[in-house]
């Protein structure tokens, strides 16, 4: 079941990437997908049933817009710091507790944090995520964990858990 879903996703991606419906192309795509599954299939999501819940896709679309808005804000934030003559930066690394359990949810959260204003993920060790922050507003753990990951975790919980 897991491998069939993975195969279909890879095959669809191949068809989109090459955009050609000839027999030779389809056979090449199938063989390439099979080889990929042979090597990397065991790293794929374990709970495949989640792919068939429609409400997850709805939250994914909502999440995409939230993410794009944050991403735009991030760019104006960085542009402001770049243009400002004095460059207001006050860097540091903070540690935030994670509430997500699944691997893919954590991966997407780390990628999202990298793209939002002034933060880059450095590492995930056990239940903590280490974040480099370009301007440390406060040193209180509750304030900054709400500011950094609180925006995304609610949506990601609905999508992946």
């Amino acid at each position: 079941m897991k491998y069939i879903t993975f195969f279909l996703i890879l095959f669809l991606f191949w068809l989109l990437l090459t955009f050609e419906l000839s027999v030779a192309n389809i056979i090449t795509g199938a063989v390439a997908s099979l080889i990929t599954i042979l090597f990397f299939g065991k790293y794929f999501v374990n709970d495949v049933k989640k792919f068939f819940h429609p409400h997850r896709y709805f939250w994914l679309i909502v999440y995409t817009f939230v993410f794009l808005w944050e991403c735009l804000k991030a760019n104006f934030d960085v542009a402001y710091r770049v243009i400002h003559p004095a460059m207001p930066i006050k860097p540091g690394i903070v540690k935030v507790k994670l509430n997500l359990k699944t691997g893919i949810g954590r991966t997407i959260l780390a990628a999202s944090i990298t793209m939002t204003p002034g933060t880059i993920t450095v590492d995930i060790i056990e239940d903590f995520i280490y974040i480099h922050w370009i301007y440390v507003h406060s040193t209180d753990p509750e304030v900054y964990s709400k500011k950094i990951s609180g925006r995304f975790e609610n949506y990601l919980k609905r999508i992946f858990e």
């Binding site: 006050k90 690394i93 540690k95 450095v122 040193t139």
Partner: peptide
Amino acid sequence: QPIKDDYK
């Protein structure tokens, strides 16, 4: 002078 460095 980093303000905070938890990763160290």
